[in-house]
Every structure is written in structure tokens, then in C-alpha cells.
Design a protein around this nucleic acid. Structure first.
Length: 154
DNA sequence: GCCAACGTTGGC
DNA sequence: GCCAACGTTGGC
């Protein structure tokens, strides 16, 4: 039973084009520093799950491509790196606090803008659109996944 | 740059 | 364990 997710990335940091240019078109999803989002990666994601790759904090926020979960969760390397913005001094290799997971490009799509998403009644239930939502990883229902697919084909 | 929402921290 | 202060997110 495949699951679906929406994962936010700031294109200034990692864009859909960065994923397309990565070796094997796979990148580790690092830098998640929110427990709820971490728990989704650690406990619920499975290889093959569908991912809506979402650009946030940018001039045109929205879904920029489709991807797939391509690996098992493992400790996020950036938490141990003092030079990283994501360094967590409270985390140790024996007791890692944060995890990463490999994400593989399925295909770059046209940009399905946040504006367009808000205007689509069939996407009204999406958690990413809920008022006050800040979670960088949210579950997507099969219905929402299919509705996004239809909108992308327009 | 603003600001509302919300998560985290830490003193008590 | 409460909760005020503080930091972050992210659209606008």
C-alpha cells in the first residue's frame, strides 16, 4: 500500500533542478529539525512512497516535481557537523536525534503554484494548505495525490 | 520586512 | 508539569 507525502524544500537550498542534477537523481533529505516531521520519516515512510516536491519560501511557492522515497531512514549526517547550519550540539553519534532519508526524482513537472492549489476545491483537505501549517513534511491522501496529478496534466 | 502561528526552552 | 519568552517558518 503506497503512501504519499509532501516535502518542502527552499529552492535556494535544494531545488527540483538540484535533485535532477544529483548523481542518480537521488539526494538525502537532511536538515529536518522538527520532531513530527522526523517521526514521519522514521516511522512511516517506506521505499517507493510518492513525494510531492514542494518549493517554499521563494517567489513562486508550489509543487515543482514528483519524487519517490528511495532508501531507509538513517542518522542525518549534518547534525554532527559543527560547520553545518544544521549542527545539533546535543546530538551524538550513539544517540542521534535527527534522521535523513533518500529521495529520488520521478519527474520534474510544471510548477503547480500554491495559488492554484488553494483555488482547487479537491485539494482543500491538504494539510499543507491548512491555516498555520508549518510542517515541512505532511502526509498526502491517495485522493489528493491523484488530484494533484490531474492538475499537473492540465 | 512584517507578522501570525506554532514549536521549543528553561525557570520555577 | 506549567507557561512565558523566545525562535522559526513561510506566505505575503
Amino acid at each position: 500500500m503506497p503512501r504519499y507525502w509532501l516535502m518542502k524544500s527552499e529552492p535556494d537550498e535544494v531545488s527540483i533542478d538540484d535533485l535532477a542534477a544529483a548523481p542518480g537523481q537521488v539526494l538525502p533529505w537532511t536538515g529536518v529539525r522538527n520532531y513530527q516531521a522526523r517521526n514521519f520519516m522514521r516511522d512511516e515512510m517506506r521505499i517507493g512512497d510518492g513525494v510531492l516536491f514542494y518549493h517554499s519560501s521563494c517567489p513562486e511557492p508550489g509543487v515543482a516535481g514528483l519524487a519517490r522515497i528511495a532508501g531507509q531512514p538513517c542518522p542525518d549526517a549534518t547534525q554532527f557537523d559543527p560547520a553545518s547550519d544544521y549542527h545539533d550540539p546535543k546530538s551524538t553519534p550513539d544517540k542521534p536525534r535527527w534522521i535523513q532519508i533518500d529521495v529520488a526524482l520521478a519527474r520534474k513537472t510544471r510548477l503547480l503554484s500554491l495559488r492554484e492549489m488553494r483555488a482547487a476545491p479537491e485539494l482543500a483537505t491538504m494539510r499543507v494548505l491548512a491555516p498555520g501549517n508549518r510542517l515541512s513534511i505532511t502526509p498526502v491522501t491517495p485522493e489528493e495525490w491523484r488530484a494533484v496529478g490531474r492538475l499537473l496534466d492540465r
